[in-house]
Simulated assay, not measured.
Amino acid sequence: MNRILTTTLALGRDRRGVTALEYALIAAFTAVAIAGVLALLGPRLSGVFQTIVNALPSV
């Protein structure tokens, strides 16, 4: 019983898991933000690239 309590207390003081979780949340929010921006700007970017393709000479 004493060993379980000691292990539990040691895990409670360990902050490495918290840091990993914070980095995972930052990565998830960044991915969501990038997806949102691409969803909003996708049609506009498609038009820009189509204009560039149309301006290139045919081979």
Rank of each mutant, 00 (worst) to 15 (best):
N2V: 06
N2D: 02
N2F: 02
R3A: 10
R3H: 10
L5W: 00
L5T: 05
T6A: 09
T7M: 09
T8A: 14
T8F: 06
L9D: 00
L9M: 08
L9A: 08
L11V: 04
L11Q: 03
L11N: 02
G12N: 03
G12C: 05
R15A: 04
R15T: 07
R15S: 05
R16L: 03
R16F: 03
R16S: 11
R16V: 06
T19F: 02
A20H: 00
L21R: 01
Y23R: 04
Y23N: 10
Y23C: 07
A24L: 03
A24F: 01
L25K: 04
I26E: 05
A27Q: 13
A27V: 06
A28T: 07
A28Y: 12
A28E: 14
A28C: 10
A28V: 11
V32Y: 15
V32L: 15
V32Q: 07
V32N: 12
A33N: 08
A33G: 07
A35P: 03
G36R: 05
V37G: 10
V37N: 07
L38S: 07
L38Q: 12
A39I: 15
A39M: 15
A39Q: 11
L40R: 09
L41Q: 15
L41M: 15
G42P: 06
G42I: 10
P43W: 15
P43H: 08
S46Y: 13
G47Y: 08
G47W: 13
V48T: 09
F49L: 12
F49H: 02
V53R: 11
V53Q: 13
V53T: 12
N54M: 13
A55T: 04
A55K: 04
L56Q: 06
L56P: 00
